[in-house]
Design a protein around this nucleic acid. Structure first.
Lengths: 174, 174
DNA sequence: CTGATTGCAAATGCTTTGCACGCCA
DNA sequence: TGGCGTGCAAAGCATTTGCAATCAG
């Protein structure tokens, strides 16, 4: 497989998966949904409903905030998108679970940077613990809060930015 | 140590810890704060701000909701109470971290029951993963969503209650 | 005294919803 | 054509905040 093919195969089959979900549920495909889905999966970054709304607006200036919210619920239900708690008091959506089905998140306390990681040992151990408790594991989410080693060594975290100083994303005027 | 002594030693030293925090910060002890703290730690159950407010009201009918919220922030800052995300779109407070400093939560998808568990292997593994990523671990929180084995075997989960059917606690009119 | 703390009500921020219209199947 | 989907504005909910009065130290 050469690099030209690779380019095409970057797609995760989102549209197909969504089509399948839509027809199975008797729903309808609309231009707004297409736009929202395209934008949501165009990067591998996490986003909030509002951040997604802003990005969608640049592509399709007609789409409303309500539709973004409604479509997000749809995508979560279809298991294309996942809600994650990054500890900043907002719902964050993660588009990377199709590529990395069982990844988890580490949040840097100093700069707010989010690092995704996978570890099969953790998965396995969680599984054991769950069964030992008499349950059948469905999903696990681990959030690790940690300090940046660079901050400790150099006295400064390179990712430290103003918007993260409070531990929350900055609120935005609508 | 006999059972009489046990009774006295159930206390976690909350009031003392709080006093220490209050004087260190130059804050003041008030009747409202005492009432809130007493109520919050009188059981080992998780609660939301509003649930705590209701319980406090039965003891001290003067305390306001705002003060409950403000005191909760205080207790979290003092590390006496911990905010946990149980996945039901509300902030839940956990009073059990003094007794079990590194416990985690399993949430039954069927009935919403929350089970606390500790596992040193998990702690250790998380620690390793974090260091490998170049960070210094501060805190980890694991939430496991799982199905009840009893539901699978008996076709019915004994804890299944109406308020959990939606996966969220019922909203409450104020 | 003096500034921390409180209650109240209003404000805030995010999310959901009612409704009339529009559009997909 | 039927009813799902949309935009809009209003409503909901949990939480925070401004302010004047009150209280602790």
């Amino acid at each position: 497989m050469n690099s030209v093919f690779m380019t095409f195969f970057v797609d995760h089959g989102i549209q197909e998966r969504l089509n399948e979900f839509i027809s199975r549920k008797g729903l309808r495909r609309t231009s707004q949904r297409s736009a929202i889905v395209t934008v949501a999966f165009s990067r591998d970054e996490h986003f909030t409903a509002d951040e997604l709304f802003d990005r969608v607006r640049k592509v399709d200036s007609e789409t409303s905030r309500a539709t973004v919210y409604r479509t997000l619920s749809l995508l979560v239900e279809a298991d294309l998108l996942r809600e994650v708690d990054l500890g900043d008091n907002q719902k964050t959506y993660d588009p990377n679970f199709l590529d990395k089905p069982s990844h988890n998140h580490l949040v840097c306390i100093d700069c707010g940077r989010v690092v995704e990681f996978e570890d099969s040992h953790l998965d396995l151990l969680n599984d054991c613990v769950t069964r030992r408790l008499g349950f059948k594991p469905v999903r696990q989410s681990i959030r690790i809060e940690a300090n940046c080693e660079q901050l400790r060594l150099k006295g400064r975290c390179p990712n430290l930015i103003a918007t993260r100083l409070t531990g929350k994303r900055l609120r935005k005027k609508r």
